[in-house]
Design a protein around this nucleic acid. Sequence first.
DNA 1: TCAATAGGGTTTAGATACGATACTATATAA
DNA 2: TTATATAGTATCGTATCTAAACCCTATTGA
Lengths: 181, 181
Amino acid sequence: MNTETKLWIERLSSLQHSLMRKAAGTQGLQLVHFEILHYLSLCNRYSNTAQALSEYLGQTKGSISQSLKFLEDQAYIIRQPDTRDRRYVRLFLTDKGQETFTQMAAAGLVPALPDDPALNHALKNALGTWQRENGIKSFGQCRSCKYNQNPGEGVFYCALLKESLSAQDTEKICREHVFPA
Amino acid sequence: MNTETKLWIERLSSLQHSLMRKAAGTQGLQLVHFEILHYLSLCNRYSNTAQALSEYLGQTKGSISQSLKFLEDQAYIIRQPDTRDRRYVRLFLTDKGQETFTQMAAAGLVPALPDDPALNHALKNALGTWQRENGIKSFGQCRSCKYNQNPGEGVFYCALLKESLSAQDTEKICREHVFPA
DNA sequence: TCAATAGGGTTTAGATACGATACTATATAA
DNA sequence: TTATATAGTATCGTATCTAAACCCTATTGA
Protein backbone atom coordinates (compact mmCIF):
# COMPACT_ATOMS: atom_id res chain seq x y z
CA MET A 1 0.00 0.00 0.00
CA ASN A 2 1.28 3.41 -0.94
CA THR A 3 1.02 6.06 1.72
CA GLU A 4 3.00 8.98 0.37
CA THR A 5 0.63 9.93 -2.43
CA LYS A 6 -2.34 9.81 -0.10
CA LEU A 7 -0.45 11.96 2.37
CA TRP A 8 0.08 14.72 -0.17
CA ILE A 9 -3.50 14.60 -1.37
CA GLU A 10 -4.80 14.70 2.17
CA ARG A 11 -2.58 17.66 2.91
CA LEU A 12 -3.62 19.58 -0.20
CA SER A 13 -7.19 18.65 0.53
CA SER A 14 -7.30 19.97 4.08
CA LEU A 15 -5.41 23.10 3.04
CA GLN A 16 -7.87 23.79 0.29
CA HIS A 17 -10.72 23.15 2.70
CA SER A 18 -9.57 25.70 5.20
CA LEU A 19 -8.66 28.28 2.56
CA MET A 20 -12.02 27.93 0.87
CA ARG A 21 -13.76 28.13 4.20
CA LYS A 22 -12.08 31.48 4.77
CA ALA A 23 -12.99 32.63 1.25
CA ALA A 24 -16.63 31.69 1.81
CA GLY A 25 -16.61 33.48 5.14
CA THR A 26 -15.74 36.79 3.50
CA GLN A 27 -19.10 36.59 1.71
CA GLY A 28 -21.01 35.46 4.78
CA LEU A 29 -21.34 31.95 3.41
CA GLN A 30 -20.44 28.53 4.71
CA LEU A 31 -17.95 26.32 2.91
CA VAL A 32 -20.67 24.03 1.65
CA HIS A 33 -22.50 26.97 0.05
CA PHE A 34 -19.37 27.94 -1.84
CA GLU A 35 -18.94 24.35 -2.98
CA ILE A 36 -22.51 24.18 -4.23
CA LEU A 37 -22.20 27.40 -6.21
CA HIS A 38 -18.94 26.10 -7.60
CA TYR A 39 -20.47 22.82 -8.66
CA LEU A 40 -23.47 24.47 -10.30
CA SER A 41 -21.16 26.72 -12.31
CA LEU A 42 -19.36 23.65 -13.63
CA CYS A 43 -21.92 20.91 -14.15
CA ASN A 44 -23.83 20.12 -17.32
CA ARG A 45 -27.59 20.11 -17.79
CA TYR A 46 -27.95 16.49 -16.72
CA SER A 47 -26.20 16.94 -13.43
CA ASN A 48 -27.77 19.96 -11.74
CA THR A 49 -29.72 18.06 -9.09
CA ALA A 50 -29.61 17.56 -5.35
CA GLN A 51 -28.75 13.90 -5.77
CA ALA A 52 -25.77 14.68 -7.97
CA LEU A 53 -24.56 17.26 -5.47
CA SER A 54 -24.89 14.71 -2.71
CA GLU A 55 -22.69 12.29 -4.63
CA TYR A 56 -20.20 14.96 -5.66
CA LEU A 57 -19.71 16.43 -2.21
CA GLY A 58 -20.03 13.16 -0.31
CA GLN A 59 -22.80 14.41 1.93
CA THR A 60 -26.25 13.03 2.59
CA LYS A 61 -29.21 14.13 0.51
CA GLY A 62 -30.87 15.66 3.54
CA SER A 63 -27.91 17.83 4.33
CA ILE A 64 -27.70 19.05 0.75
CA SER A 65 -31.41 19.71 0.68
CA GLN A 66 -31.10 21.98 3.71
CA SER A 67 -28.23 23.91 2.18
CA LEU A 68 -30.20 24.33 -1.06
CA LYS A 69 -33.13 25.69 0.91
CA PHE A 70 -30.87 28.30 2.45
CA LEU A 71 -29.35 29.23 -0.92
CA GLU A 72 -32.78 29.58 -2.50
CA ASP A 73 -34.08 31.70 0.39
CA GLN A 74 -31.06 33.97 -0.09
CA ALA A 75 -31.69 34.09 -3.86
CA TYR A 76 -28.37 32.53 -4.85
CA ILE A 77 -30.11 29.74 -6.76
CA ILE A 78 -33.55 28.79 -8.05
CA ARG A 79 -35.16 25.36 -8.03
CA GLN A 80 -37.30 24.28 -10.96
CA PRO A 81 -39.09 20.93 -11.23
CA ASP A 82 -38.17 19.04 -14.38
CA THR A 83 -41.08 19.00 -16.84
CA ARG A 84 -40.29 15.58 -18.30
CA ASP A 85 -39.56 13.62 -15.15
CA ARG A 86 -41.21 15.40 -12.29
CA ARG A 87 -39.14 13.59 -9.68
CA TYR A 88 -36.21 15.83 -10.53
CA VAL A 89 -35.75 19.37 -9.30
CA ARG A 90 -33.27 21.25 -11.48
CA LEU A 91 -30.95 23.78 -9.87
CA PHE A 92 -29.78 27.02 -11.49
CA LEU A 93 -27.53 29.83 -10.36
CA THR A 94 -29.18 33.23 -10.24
CA ASP A 95 -27.30 36.33 -11.35
CA LYS A 96 -26.57 37.00 -7.72
CA GLY A 97 -25.27 33.49 -7.24
CA GLN A 98 -23.10 33.63 -10.33
CA GLU A 99 -21.72 37.02 -9.38
CA THR A 100 -20.97 36.03 -5.81
CA PHE A 101 -19.14 32.93 -6.91
CA THR A 102 -17.17 34.81 -9.55
CA GLN A 103 -16.14 37.41 -6.99
CA MET A 104 -14.90 34.79 -4.56
CA ALA A 105 -12.99 32.95 -7.26
CA ALA A 106 -11.52 36.12 -8.79
CA ALA A 107 -10.47 37.62 -5.49
CA GLY A 108 -7.57 35.20 -5.47
CA LEU A 109 -8.77 33.89 -2.13
CA VAL A 110 -8.43 30.36 -3.37
CA PRO A 111 -4.80 29.69 -4.16
CA ALA A 112 -3.79 28.94 -7.72
CA LEU A 113 -1.75 25.95 -8.75
CA PRO A 114 0.91 25.64 -11.41
CA ASP A 115 -0.50 24.29 -14.65
CA ASP A 116 1.19 20.94 -14.86
CA PRO A 117 -0.13 18.48 -17.47
CA ALA A 118 1.71 15.63 -15.78
CA LEU A 119 -0.05 16.42 -12.52
CA ASN A 120 -3.46 16.49 -14.19
CA HIS A 121 -2.74 13.22 -15.91
CA ALA A 122 -1.59 11.53 -12.72
CA LEU A 123 -4.56 12.80 -10.74
CA LYS A 124 -6.92 11.53 -13.42
CA ASN A 125 -5.31 8.10 -13.17
CA ALA A 126 -5.60 8.10 -9.40
CA LEU A 127 -9.25 9.07 -9.57
CA GLY A 128 -9.91 6.44 -12.25
CA THR A 129 -8.43 3.80 -9.96
CA TRP A 130 -10.64 4.82 -7.08
CA GLN A 131 -13.63 4.87 -9.33
CA ARG A 132 -13.03 1.33 -10.59
CA GLU A 133 -12.24 -0.09 -7.16
CA ASN A 134 -14.94 1.64 -5.14
CA GLY A 135 -17.74 2.17 -7.64
CA ILE A 136 -17.61 5.90 -7.14
CA LYS A 137 -18.58 8.46 -9.72
CA SER A 138 -15.75 10.50 -11.17
CA PHE A 139 -17.65 13.63 -12.28
CA GLY A 140 -15.15 14.39 -15.05
CA GLN A 141 -15.59 16.60 -18.07
CA CYS A 142 -17.52 15.11 -20.97
CA ARG A 143 -14.53 15.38 -23.27
CA SER A 144 -12.67 12.82 -21.14
CA CYS A 145 -15.64 10.43 -20.98
CA LYS A 146 -15.85 7.11 -22.74
CA TYR A 147 -19.38 7.88 -23.94
CA ASN A 148 -18.30 11.04 -25.72
CA GLN A 149 -18.11 10.75 -29.50
CA ASN A 150 -16.84 13.24 -32.07
CA PRO A 151 -18.61 12.52 -35.37
CA GLY A 152 -17.65 15.81 -37.06
CA GLU A 153 -15.67 19.01 -36.72
CA GLY A 154 -16.76 20.65 -33.45
CA VAL A 155 -19.72 18.28 -33.15
CA PHE A 156 -20.02 15.91 -30.22
CA TYR A 157 -22.47 13.25 -29.18
CA CYS A 158 -23.15 11.49 -25.88
CA ALA A 159 -23.66 7.80 -26.55
CA LEU A 160 -25.20 7.26 -23.13
CA LEU A 161 -27.83 10.00 -23.04
CA LYS A 162 -28.14 10.03 -26.83
CA GLU A 163 -27.97 13.78 -27.27
CA SER A 164 -25.67 15.96 -29.31
CA LEU A 165 -23.30 18.29 -27.49
CA SER A 166 -21.51 21.48 -28.39
CA ALA A 167 -17.79 21.93 -27.87
CA GLN A 168 -18.66 24.08 -24.87
CA ASP A 169 -20.88 21.34 -23.47
CA THR A 170 -17.95 18.94 -23.40
CA GLU A 171 -16.11 21.18 -20.95
CA LYS A 172 -18.80 20.68 -18.31
CA ILE A 173 -18.62 18.00 -15.65
CA CYS A 174 -21.19 15.22 -15.70
CA ARG A 175 -22.66 12.85 -13.18
CA GLU A 176 -22.56 10.00 -15.70
CA HIS A 177 -18.89 10.47 -16.56
CA VAL A 178 -16.82 7.30 -16.94
CA PHE A 179 -13.14 7.15 -17.86
CA PRO A 180 -12.21 5.10 -20.95
CA ALA A 181 -10.86 1.63 -20.16
CA MET B 1 -5.54 30.62 -13.36
CA ASN B 2 -5.57 26.88 -13.72
CA THR B 3 -8.84 25.25 -12.79
CA GLU B 4 -8.48 21.65 -13.91
CA THR B 5 -5.87 20.63 -11.36
CA LYS B 6 -7.89 22.11 -8.55
CA LEU B 7 -10.97 20.29 -9.79
CA TRP B 8 -9.25 16.93 -9.56
CA ILE B 9 -7.86 17.65 -6.14
CA GLU B 10 -11.24 18.82 -4.90
CA ARG B 11 -12.82 15.68 -6.26
CA LEU B 12 -10.24 13.35 -4.72
CA SER B 13 -10.52 15.32 -1.53
CA SER B 14 -14.29 15.04 -1.13
CA LEU B 15 -14.18 11.37 -2.12
CA GLN B 16 -11.57 10.64 0.48
CA HIS B 17 -13.56 12.60 3.03
CA SER B 18 -16.69 10.55 2.56
CA LEU B 19 -14.83 7.23 2.39
CA MET B 20 -12.92 8.01 5.55
CA ARG B 21 -16.10 9.13 7.25
CA LYS B 22 -17.58 5.73 6.49
CA ALA B 23 -14.44 3.99 7.74
CA ALA B 24 -14.55 5.96 10.98
CA GLY B 25 -18.23 5.16 11.36
CA THR B 26 -17.53 1.44 11.42
CA GLN B 27 -15.57 2.02 14.65
CA GLY B 28 -18.13 4.38 16.14
CA LEU B 29 -15.87 7.36 15.56
CA GLN B 30 -16.30 10.68 13.81
CA LEU B 31 -14.16 11.61 10.83
CA VAL B 32 -12.14 14.10 12.85
CA HIS B 33 -11.27 11.39 15.38
CA PHE B 34 -9.94 9.18 12.62
CA GLU B 35 -7.91 12.06 11.23
CA ILE B 36 -6.40 12.79 14.63
CA LEU B 37 -5.37 9.17 15.17
CA HIS B 38 -3.95 9.17 11.66
CA TYR B 39 -1.93 12.31 12.29
CA LEU B 40 -0.56 11.04 15.60
CA SER B 41 0.58 7.84 13.94
CA LEU B 42 2.53 9.87 11.38
CA CYS B 43 3.97 12.89 13.13
CA ASN B 44 7.37 13.19 14.75
CA ARG B 45 8.13 13.99 18.35
CA TYR B 46 8.11 17.74 17.78
CA SER B 47 4.67 17.82 16.24
CA ASN B 48 2.37 15.88 18.56
CA THR B 49 0.50 18.85 19.99
CA ALA B 50 -2.99 20.33 19.78
CA GLN B 51 -1.67 23.40 18.01
CA ALA B 52 0.00 21.33 15.29
CA LEU B 53 -3.20 19.35 14.83
CA SER B 54 -5.14 22.56 14.50
CA GLU B 55 -2.80 23.74 11.74
CA TYR B 56 -2.71 20.38 10.02
CA LEU B 57 -6.46 19.83 9.92
CA GLY B 58 -7.40 23.47 9.42
CA GLN B 59 -9.70 23.53 12.42
CA THR B 60 -9.75 25.86 15.38
CA LYS B 61 -7.89 25.05 18.57
CA GLY B 62 -11.14 24.91 20.51
CA SER B 63 -12.64 22.33 18.21
CA ILE B 64 -9.50 20.20 18.33
CA SER B 65 -9.36 20.50 22.11
CA GLN B 66 -12.89 19.11 22.35
CA SER B 67 -12.07 16.19 20.11
CA LEU B 68 -8.93 15.44 22.10
CA LYS B 69 -10.95 15.43 25.30
CA PHE B 70 -13.28 12.85 23.81
CA LEU B 71 -10.39 10.70 22.57
CA GLU B 72 -8.69 10.80 25.96
CA ASP B 73 -11.93 9.94 27.77
CA GLN B 74 -12.30 6.95 25.46
CA ALA B 75 -8.65 5.96 26.07
CA TYR B 76 -7.54 6.33 22.46
CA ILE B 77 -4.84 8.82 23.40
CA ILE B 78 -3.08 10.17 26.47
CA ARG B 79 -2.02 13.75 27.12
CA GLN B 80 1.26 14.45 28.88
CA PRO B 81 2.59 17.91 29.74
CA ASP B 82 6.05 18.55 28.32
CA THR B 83 8.68 18.63 31.05
CA ARG B 84 10.90 21.23 29.38
CA ASP B 85 8.31 23.73 28.18
CA ARG B 86 5.27 23.28 30.31
CA ARG B 87 3.01 25.15 27.92
CA TYR B 88 3.01 22.11 25.65
CA VAL B 89 0.85 19.06 26.16
CA ARG B 90 2.23 16.12 24.20
CA LEU B 91 -0.19 13.67 22.64
CA PHE B 92 0.39 9.94 22.35
CA LEU B 93 -1.61 7.07 20.91
CA THR B 94 -2.49 4.36 23.41
CA ASP B 95 -2.39 0.72 22.40
CA LYS B 96 -6.14 0.92 21.87
CA GLY B 97 -5.74 3.99 19.68
CA GLN B 98 -2.98 2.45 17.62
CA GLU B 99 -4.89 -0.78 17.19
CA THR B 100 -8.12 0.93 16.21
CA PHE B 101 -6.38 3.05 13.63
CA THR B 102 -4.46 0.08 12.23
CA GLN B 103 -7.67 -1.89 11.93
CA MET B 104 -9.41 0.87 10.02
CA ALA B 105 -6.44 1.36 7.71
CA ALA B 106 -5.84 -2.36 7.14
CA ALA B 107 -9.48 -3.15 6.49
CA GLY B 108 -9.05 -1.55 3.10
CA LEU B 109 -11.76 0.91 3.99
CA VAL B 110 -9.58 3.74 2.85
CA PRO B 111 -8.87 3.35 -0.85
CA ALA B 112 -5.31 2.81 -2.00
CA LEU B 113 -3.66 4.72 -4.80
CA PRO B 114 -1.14 3.56 -7.38
CA ASP B 115 2.40 4.47 -6.40
CA ASP B 116 3.29 7.05 -9.01
CA PRO B 117 6.59 8.93 -8.49
CA ALA B 118 5.55 11.55 -11.06
CA LEU B 119 2.36 12.18 -9.13
CA ASN B 120 4.22 12.52 -5.85
CA HIS B 121 6.66 14.91 -7.41
CA ALA B 122 3.93 17.04 -8.95
CA LEU B 123 1.93 17.14 -5.74
CA LYS B 124 5.02 18.19 -3.84
CA ASN B 125 5.53 21.06 -6.26
CA ALA B 126 1.93 22.16 -5.99
CA LEU B 127 2.07 22.09 -2.21
CA GLY B 128 5.37 23.95 -2.22
CA THR B 129 3.79 26.67 -4.33
CA TRP B 130 0.88 27.03 -1.95
CA GLN B 131 3.22 27.09 0.98
CA ARG B 132 5.34 29.89 -0.47
CA GLU B 133 2.37 31.97 -1.63
CA ASN B 134 0.15 31.59 1.39
CA GLY B 135 2.56 31.07 4.24
CA ILE B 136 1.03 27.73 5.10
CA LYS B 137 2.86 24.86 6.71
CA SER B 138 3.48 21.85 4.50
CA PHE B 139 3.83 19.11 7.14
CA GLY B 140 6.08 17.03 4.92
CA GLN B 141 8.41 14.22 5.89
CA CYS B 142 11.75 15.26 7.34
CA ARG B 143 13.66 13.64 4.50
CA SER B 144 12.17 16.15 2.06
CA CYS B 145 12.89 19.14 4.31
CA LYS B 146 15.50 21.78 3.65
CA TYR B 147 16.72 21.57 7.24
CA ASN B 148 17.50 17.87 7.00
CA GLN B 149 21.19 17.01 6.71
CA ASN B 150 22.87 13.67 6.07
CA PRO B 151 26.37 13.82 7.58
CA GLY B 152 27.01 10.06 7.43
CA GLU B 153 25.65 6.71 6.38
CA GLY B 154 22.16 6.38 7.87
CA VAL B 155 22.76 9.39 10.13
CA PHE B 156 20.60 12.50 9.87
CA TYR B 157 20.53 15.86 11.56
CA CYS B 158 17.89 18.58 11.79
CA ALA B 159 19.58 21.95 11.33
CA LEU B 160 16.57 23.79 12.71
CA LEU B 161 15.95 21.92 15.95
CA LYS B 162 19.61 20.87 16.21
CA GLU B 163 19.01 17.25 17.02
CA SER B 164 20.17 14.08 15.34
CA LEU B 165 17.59 11.88 13.66
CA SER B 166 17.46 8.23 12.76
CA ALA B 167 16.53 7.06 9.29
CA GLN B 168 13.14 6.12 10.71
CA ASP B 169 12.73 9.60 12.15
CA THR B 170 13.08 11.14 8.72
CA GLU B 171 9.96 9.28 7.55
CA LYS B 172 7.79 11.16 10.04
CA ILE B 173 5.96 14.36 9.20
CA CYS B 174 6.96 17.55 10.94
CA ARG B 175 5.30 20.81 11.78
CA GLU B 176 8.49 22.72 10.91
CA HIS B 177 8.90 21.14 7.49
CA VAL B 178 9.98 23.48 4.69
CA PHE B 179 10.64 22.49 1.08
CA PRO B 180 14.08 23.28 -0.37
CA ALA B 181 14.17 26.41 -2.53
C1' DT C 1 -54.23 -2.86 -15.28
C1' DC C 2 -52.29 -2.36 -11.15
C1' DA C 3 -49.39 -3.65 -7.55
C1' DA C 4 -44.38 -3.68 -6.50
C1' DT C 5 -40.09 -1.57 -6.81
C1' DA C 6 -36.84 2.01 -7.40
C1' DG C 7 -35.25 6.65 -7.50
C1' DG C 8 -35.31 11.77 -6.35
C1' DG C 9 -36.37 14.94 -2.89
C1' DT C 10 -37.86 16.79 1.70
C1' DT C 11 -38.46 16.93 6.62
C1' DT C 12 -37.36 16.01 11.34
C1' DA C 13 -34.58 15.04 15.47
C1' DG C 14 -30.45 14.42 17.78
C1' DA C 15 -25.53 14.74 17.70
C1' DT C 16 -21.67 17.35 16.55
C1' DA C 17 -18.56 20.69 14.50
C1' DC C 18 -17.34 25.29 14.23
C1' DG C 19 -16.10 30.15 15.35
C1' DA C 20 -15.77 33.51 18.76
C1' DT C 21 -14.60 34.79 23.12
C1' DA C 22 -12.72 34.70 27.49
C1' DC C 23 -9.57 32.68 30.40
C1' DT C 24 -5.24 30.30 32.61
C1' DA C 25 -0.50 29.33 32.45
C1' DT C 26 4.22 29.41 30.79
C1' DA C 27 8.09 31.32 28.25
C1' DT C 28 10.58 35.02 26.08
C1' DA C 29 11.85 39.86 25.04
C1' DA C 30 12.44 44.63 26.14
C1' DT D 1 9.79 43.64 35.94
C1' DT D 2 6.62 44.42 32.66
C1' DA D 3 4.93 43.43 28.21
C1' DT D 4 4.21 40.31 24.69
C1' DA D 5 3.73 35.92 22.52
C1' DT D 6 2.47 31.17 22.63
C1' DA D 7 -0.06 26.74 24.11
C1' DG D 8 -3.99 25.09 25.78
C1' DT D 9 -8.86 24.80 27.89
C1' DA D 10 -13.79 25.98 28.67
C1' DT D 11 -18.16 27.71 27.20
C1' DC D 12 -21.90 29.32 24.28
C1' DG D 13 -24.69 30.04 20.20
C1' DT D 14 -25.22 28.88 15.48
C1' DA D 15 -25.45 25.99 11.78
C1' DT D 16 -24.18 21.70 9.67
C1' DC D 17 -24.34 16.69 9.38
C1' DT D 18 -26.22 11.98 9.57
C1' DA D 19 -29.86 8.83 9.79
C1' DA D 20 -34.38 7.59 9.37
C1' DA D 21 -38.98 8.18 8.03
C1' DC D 22 -41.73 9.95 4.62
C1' DC D 23 -43.86 11.74 0.03
C1' DC D 24 -44.08 11.83 -4.84
C1' DT D 25 -43.16 10.13 -9.48
C1' DA D 26 -41.61 6.76 -12.87
C1' DT D 27 -40.75 2.14 -14.28
C1' DT D 28 -41.24 -2.76 -14.16
C1' DG D 29 -43.62 -6.92 -14.61
C1' DA D 30 -47.01 -10.12 -13.50
